[in-house]
Design a protein around this nucleic acid. Sequence first.
DNA 1: CCGCTATTGTACCGTTCGGTACAACCACAA
DNA 2: TTGTGGTTGTACCGAACGGTACAATAGCGG
Lengths: 192, 192
Amino acid sequence: MPPASLSRTEVIERLTVVLRQQGFAGASLAELSKATGLGKSSLYHYFPDGKDDMTRAVLAHLAEQLQEALFAPLLAPGPARRRLDAMAGTLNTFYRGGREACLLGNLVVGETRDRFHEELAAIFEQWIAAIAVVLRDAGFSRTLARTRAEDAVIRIEGALVLAAGSGQEGVFERTLRQLPADLLAPAKAGRD
Amino acid sequence: MPPASLSRTEVIERLTVVLRQQGFAGASLAELSKATGLGKSSLYHYFPDGKDDMTRAVLAHLAEQLQEALFAPLLAPGPARRRLDAMAGTLNTFYRGGREACLLGNLVVGETRDRFHEELAAIFEQWIAAIAVVLRDAGFSRTLARTRAEDAVIRIEGALVLAAGSGQEGVFERTLRQLPADLLAPAKAGRD
DNA sequence: CCGCTATTGTACCGTTCGGTACAACCACAA
DNA sequence: TTGTGGTTGTACCGAACGGTACAATAGCGG
């Protein structure tokens, strides 16, 4: 085994890859060890509580990443449309056009949903709240902004599921392309 | 262990419960055995290839169920709106208002995505195709009907993810409530 | 150079994993 | 009654699981 020379961040990023592809139950210590290049003893040195600790570290790292790459731009000044377009662009590269799975989506399963519920719910909430701010800035009511923001996250997560399940390439990118305009579309009586 | 006296269908339904809650990797033989009341030997008697066979049987059973409870009503004559409303109602009970996970969504993960890709893709495709027929009947173009049908499945799957991840009860039901009207909304220039 | 701490390899723990072998059972037909 | 074939409990398999103990190392400040 090489002398590592990986920063903690790099280790966490490699753990992320395994967890987001395999889910919690499917990610074995052996795989996590291989992916990081760290032996089990090193892994337990940095993450004393094992997979649990690793997952929490991965979630914390993800929260930071999203904060600066997604939420902050959403909350920054500028035209609503441009901010939403930026989110779509960021997500498209983040999920490699739908070819990469969503860590959050793969952790809301079985016992892990309850075990990491706080962290998961917090990330989802921040995301929705950030989108809702944009929609409020665009002039929508608080409640409409909120439901549309939830809808945005719903469509992103759903598109990742369908893209993975159907194997159709375009599904995710098309969803991202439509999203900004749909979110900003004028409210219609009887809808929303 | 009781003398079983379960029909094959009942066994499959009990396997379904475990698989949809725990996913493939998270569903152990011990759990599947306990849930069905069948010992491992009986399980292997009915499903010689183990979890693989069980999962395939569960997927086949799900396909049948969806066929008669979801796709057939969608393809039956009647006003488009009523047919979509029926779908929404069926889904709401099927997923217990978002409290129950989606088997499909939990199988598009890790290696299981590839292992059962054919079955998964077929079910998604049938579902989308059935919705698209309704939208074509409602007067939409082939391509618009198709993309909106994909969007419907996307929103359903996404709503299940967000409902599970956020713990918010209303998310799934609200999504289902909005869906029929959104799908039938007149096309607007620049959107869709 | 020393000594100290952080890190790591190796060996091992008990448990559970998916899966198999096989004898006993059971209902039922001959 | 005696098969007989579909079923089942029990015992077991090797491998992999998550996790631990510990001695050896590596790197670095003094």
